[in-house]
Lab assay of single mutants.
Amino acid sequence: KRYRAVYDYSAADEDEVSFQDGDTIVNVQQIDDGWMYGTVERTGDTGMLPANYVEAI
């Protein structure tokens, strides 16, 4: 699945990823209600991200 960031996010922990509004997130997997795991296409960084900061595309 592919998602697009709708807000900027700065990683708060080493297992999270930072991204900017408009970034595409690929290979996304749902972890639980609030978190997903995926790769930021622009940077190649992979990690956890907050589900409410992205939307499906």
Rank of each mutant, 00 (worst) to 15 (best):
K1P: 12
R2P: 08
R2C: 12
R2G: 08
Y3E: 02
Y3C: 06
R4D: 05
R4Y: 09
R4W: 08
R4S: 07
A5V: 05
A5Y: 00
V6F: 08
Y7G: 13
Y7E: 10
Y7V: 10
D8K: 09
D8M: 08
Y9T: 01
Y9S: 00
S10Y: 13
S10D: 13
S10T: 14
S10M: 13
S10G: 07
S10C: 13
S10Q: 14
A11V: 03
A11E: 03
A12Q: 15
A12T: 12
D13R: 15
D13I: 09
E14H: 11
E14S: 12
D15Y: 15
E16I: 04
V17E: 00
S18K: 02
Q20A: 08
Q20G: 06
Q20V: 14
G22D: 04
G22E: 03
D23E: 04
D23C: 03
D23Y: 03
T24S: 09
T24I: 15
T24A: 09
T24G: 05
I25G: 01
I25A: 00
V26F: 10
V28R: 02
V28E: 03
Q30M: 13
Q30S: 11
Q30A: 11
I31C: 13
I31H: 07
I31W: 09
D32K: 14
D32Y: 12
D33K: 11
G34P: 03
G34T: 14
W35F: 06
W35S: 04
M36P: 00
M36W: 10
M36Q: 04
Y37T: 07
G38Y: 02
T39M: 08
T39R: 07
T39L: 06
V40K: 00
E41V: 10
R42A: 06
R42L: 04
R42Y: 04
T43H: 03
T43N: 05
D45R: 12
D45V: 10
T46F: 07
T46Q: 09
T46E: 08
G47L: 02
G47I: 02
M48F: 14
M48S: 06
M48L: 14
M48P: 01
L49A: 04
P50T: 02
P50Y: 06
A51S: 13
A51F: 08
Y53R: 10
V54F: 07
V54K: 01
E55S: 09
A56K: 10
A56Q: 12
I57K: 05
I57E: 09
